[in-house]
Simulated scan of single mutants.
Amino acid sequence: MSIAERLVTEPLAIPRPATTAPFARIDTFDKALTAPGGYGARLRACRTAALDFKREFAVGGRPDSVRTHDLISLPYPTRYGLFRAAISPTPFVTISNRMLIVRWTDSDGTKRTLLFEPSDHELDSYTPYFAELQRYTPGPLRNLFVTAHTDVLSACRAAGVDPAEVDYLAFDHLHTQDVRRWLGTTRPQADISPERAVSAAFPNAKLLAQREELEAMADLHPFQRPWYQPGTFVDLPPEKILPLDGSVLLGPGVALISTPGHAMGNQSLVLNTDSGIWAISENAIATECLTPEHSKIPGLSGSTRSWGHEVVLNANTIETTYEQYNSLVIEKTIVDVSQQDSRFLQFFPSSELTGALLNPGTSPTFTHRAIRHG
């Protein structure tokens, strides 16, 4: 079945909860993201807003702990991940998708747990684009390119996290995501459990997603359709979804900030840790994409110098490229420098570029691999 045959083209009845999320709003970026005068003026406003946010966030406390867990490494088109910059002849890079477990204590003493990027990589593989890609890497051949490290529930067990303790699930955006097994469904699902509704693996968890993206999924544009599985959201329990309207402070040293561009409802996780401030998203696939002048990947430093770009986007979708550029500059401005190598920043790609023998000329100059705090 081709990509076109897999796409949903009619509006869907995706749940649209009216619930207001119980978090403090961060309004620092609101005016900057919509400043008059064009995207150049907005870029300057975003940089100023990011500096203001960083000063306040740095003194606002820290979470109790942060841990990362590798889920899966898989191929990804070079032309997307290293947008217009790399000169490697290989058509694919390898990226490693990772989940973060973030725990904090609210002001009233309540313990909270967030899973960020808890991707169900088995069900996510049915996303139209990746389903099409798998046609060219069947059976044993796929094992040359794809490495499954662990799954979400196994990672939770390894970290000593009871699924019932998980309060929130969040992603930087909802491309590829199928969360039915995590949140449960209101009706039987023929492709998972034909006899009964799917029970929730995380019975007390709620999905935190930008309202704008949730609403857009009901009636996607053709440019968006290859990257979403909107039909999997139709039977989610509405009470399990908490729509966000912009940036919010989840807890001490834990924020989700609106970083639109890669997707309408793109959001970045920002953490204040023992090593300083981190930002986590898929706006770029390597931290050197924020300081490309220090990159040894052929083409990156030269291309950005020639074009006058200060960052290299992960541009598999070009919804609003100007906005994504500005959002990545926000992240670049917020974070601190790496304690391992001061040429690079504490930007942690949720899917990080990983060196592979099959992909010459795309090995990263520097990788974080993990965040450990608390």
Rank of each mutant, 00 (worst) to 15 (best):
R196D: 15
A197E: 10
S199N: 13
P203K: 03
A205P: 01
A205L: 03
A209W: 04
R211D: 11
E212R: 05
E213Q: 12
L214I: 14
L214E: 07
E215L: 04
E215A: 04
A218G: 15
H221A: 08
H221C: 02
H221N: 10
Q224D: 11
R225H: 00
Q229L: 12
Q229V: 11
T232I: 02
T232A: 13
T232M: 08
L236G: 08
L236I: 10
P237N: 04
P238L: 06
K240L: 06
I241M: 08
L242D: 03
P243K: 07
L244Q: 03
S247A: 09
V248L: 08
L249S: 15
L249C: 14
L249F: 04
G253W: 07
V254M: 07
A255S: 12
A255P: 03
I257T: 09
I257C: 06
S258V: 00
S258R: 14
G261T: 03
G261M: 05
G261C: 05
H262G: 09
H262N: 07
A263Y: 11
L269G: 06
L271V: 11
S275E: 15
G276M: 04
G276W: 02
W278K: 09
W278N: 09
A279S: 14
A279T: 09
I280V: 15
E282F: 04
I285P: 00
A286S: 14
T287K: 07
T287F: 08
E288L: 10
E288D: 11
C289V: 13
P292L: 09
P292Q: 06
E293H: 13
E293Q: 15
K296A: 13
I297M: 11
G299P: 03
G302W: 03
W307T: 10
G308K: 03
H309L: 14
V311E: 09
V311I: 14
L313P: 01
N314T: 02
N316D: 14
T317P: 00
I318H: 13
T320L: 11
T321M: 12
E323M: 12
E323P: 00
E323C: 05
